[in-house]
Design a protein around this nucleic acid. Structure first.
Lengths: 137, 137
DNA sequence: TCTTTGTTATAGTTTTTCTAGAACAAAGAG
DNA sequence: CTCTTTGTTCTAGAAAAACTATAACAAAGA
């Protein structure tokens, strides 16, 4: 898994790392059961500290996306096909979505353009190609 | 304009303030030409420091949403009907949208549900109710 | 001229971020 | 059973960000 981080950006490294992994899961480049690199290994590869990777992994664990265990390492336990998300996840997500969408509208982006962009992004995800009323697997 | 901030949240106060104002613009509760409260006044109302408000206003200014001037104060200069956004704004927005949408998918939200939620949010904005191929006003 | 309002400067505290090194603990590999 | 790998925890420190507090400056409308 190739990851690149912006060292001089305004987004914290552990947040960027978390985001890239979330995107990898959504993209289908990571599936349930897949292992993430060991914290020490990934830290070395990225040229950052072990604890920074640790923090990103801890975030993903608290979000219910990975399982952490000694010796086994970090393993993906959630993807688009795993089943319905815990209650509250959708509403909490929507709240943040509302802020982002408000920004688009406030800045004058055409709402239908926004819709199309969102649709295109979703369609780009493996799980977004087909309507999925009931979870598979 | 009534605003409430989460003092003990993990989102910086100036960021929350910026978000609430962006939402107010998108909601149509703030229009082009409307004045925001003076920094000292708003700081006092919210029980926070003047410089924190200042930082939020400065963000909004750099985003092209308000104009700042002495004596005149902070005035909204952009809303959904002002015209097309500067080049690059849409693409920069889409990049962040992609991360947020990836999170939804990775957490198992049904893509069609995500679409519906996005649509409902957009429709809730005054500018989102009707298709707007060409800017009005 | 006075007052309002943004702007800038200085300074200090607290929290967050990132790094560094070390040791501990569980669990699979051999 | 021993060794090694991997997450976990601890301490510590540096740098940056966030927030507060005061004060003074500067422009511009009343």
């Amino acid at each position: 898994m190739i990851l690149t981080l912006e060292v001089d950006g305004d987004v914290p490294l552990y947040q960027q790392l978390r985001d890239r992994i979330v995107e990898a899961i959504a993209d289908g480049r990571l599936h349930v059961g897949d292992s993430l690199p060991a914290t020490r290994q990934l830290a070395a590869d990225l040229g950052i500290n072990m604890h920074t990777v640790n923090k990103a992994y801890d975030l993903l664990r608290r979000e219910g996306l990975i399982r952490l265990a000694r010796r086994t390492g970090a393993v993906v336990i959630r993807d688009a096909f795993t089943g319905p998300p815990p209650a509250g996840v959708a509403d909490e997500w929507e709240e943040r979505a509302r802020t982002l969408l408000a920004e688009a509208v406030a800045k004058g982006l055409d709402p239908s353009d926004v819709t199309h962009r969102v649709q295109r992004i979703l369609d780009g995800f493996p799980a977004g190609s087909s309507v999925r009323p009931t979870p598979e697997r």
